[in-house]
Design a binder for these strands. Structure first.
Lengths: 225, 225
DNA sequence: TCAATCTTTACATAATCTTTACAGACATTA
DNA sequence: TAATGTCTGTAAAGATTATGTAAAGATTGA
């Protein structure tokens, strides 16, 4: 699954170049020229990393970084700016930035820093085997007590999302942003619930008394393992 | 508690300056002039972060970084070097480095990057454990004296509000604004009191003589710890 | 086209929230 | 002191909302 980035920069040319380069290195990139547009993107999908230019027309970059970290503490932020003074850098890091790159920058260095950030935030897991449930993310194979079960793409993505966030309550809102993202799915839709039932029927011994995916009423679901 | 760093650099002067500066900013710094000495330090203590110069007399820095990451994957490594070419940086990040600083560097920037790295490796505390009451906000689990209790969403939110404002008197008006917000709840409604009673019944040993959530007559409630 | 998958719909059931009613505690006032 | 009013504790019933689940319709890709 490709990593989703959000690039916020007021310079349309830089955006275009960055997006092209990131996609060349196998990232998926959404772009926004203003903070307002960035918020719209964040309303529907949660990126794995945000690249943030400090000079936006509609907001102070340092303040925006603080807001981002307050609302999405887990998403790493790389600051991108022409300001190269030490005090600027210090302020950037203090506002919660995970890295700070000075323009003009080399694309390869940016890519390397993006990878370093992502590596840190999500310890890549290719295989998981716990409590009778084996998952091979590369081969798309799921086994329950040794026998392979056949999952549809959405079911597999859902399971992956749960395993990556195991033992945490996941809201339907979070699932919607992560798995539906760009496509529209109304908040009152029961689609997520239905997929979840299908997944339960395939991996749970007794779907009506789930062992792995438990319901947390009013909050969402939790993958327990 | 002070963060412990390990600084590895073959230049004794730089080591001295770095150590002094780091201690000025409230870090504790062990130093080593060679990879052999660094290994000795690692044998007796695990630092929270390693600052690694790439040009050591007894080993290639890139290789050393790989070894470090293989043995201590959780300890962040900041590379420090005079080599400033993009390919050097890319190699550095690929060998597992978490950040890369080019000499000569500004102390303040180094400090800022050290802080950013440490902040990242120790995510904000999402668990509270006080006086026999444990709360895990991510997993939505509440335990009283070791045994898990089952809270409804409103009860959980209420408890969270109390814990976040512990030892402060909270008015019903404040609770209403925080948990009900714009939805209508008349000021004469007893709903909040009822939820609070339910919460007491679940977390207090003796609900009629509450230990955690005490009533402040005429004012509201207070979470005591 | 077909088959697989995704989404919507509808309804049953479960869980939660809110109201209501009354009892007791406490302070105030006649 | 007794009467009164206000505030809080508590149980129970009713109202509301959330979730489980099957089945039908829509979409997609080969």
């Amino acid at each position: 699954m490709k990593k989703q980035l959000l690039v916020v920069d007021d310079d349309a040319d830089i955006l275009k170049v960055l997006k092209a380069n990131l996609e060349l290195y196998d990232f998926q990139a959404a772009t926004a020229e203003t903070w307002a547009l960035a918020k719209e993107v964040l309303d529907v999908q949660l990126p794995d990393l945000i690249i943030l230019d400090l000079t936006l027309p509609d907001g102070d970059g340092i303040e925006i970084c603080r807001l981002l970290k307050a609302e999405y503490p887990k998403i790493p932020v790389i600051m991108l700016t022409a300001r190269d003074s030490v005090s600027d850098k210090v302020m950037g890091f203090e506002s919660g930035a995970d890295d700070y790159i000075v323009k003009p920058f080399e694309t390869l260095e940016l890519i390397a820093r993006v990878r370093a950030c992502l590596r840190r935030s999500v310890p890549a897991e290719r295989k998981v085997s716990i409590n009778g449930l084996e998952i091979d993310f590369d081969a798309h194979i799921v086994r329950v007590k040794g026998s392979e079960v056949d999952l549809t793409p959405k079911e597999f993505d859902l399971l992956q999302l749960f395993v990556l966030n195991r033992n945490e309550v996941i809201s339907r809102e979070f699932i919607r942003k992560k798995l539906w993202g760009d496509s529209k799915l109304y908040s009152w839709s029961r689609t997520i619930d239905v997929h979840l039932q299908h997944l339960r029927q395939k991996i749970e011994k007794n779907p009506s008394a789930p062992e792995y995916i438990v319901t947390v009423p009013g909050k969402g679901y939790k993958f327990r393992m």
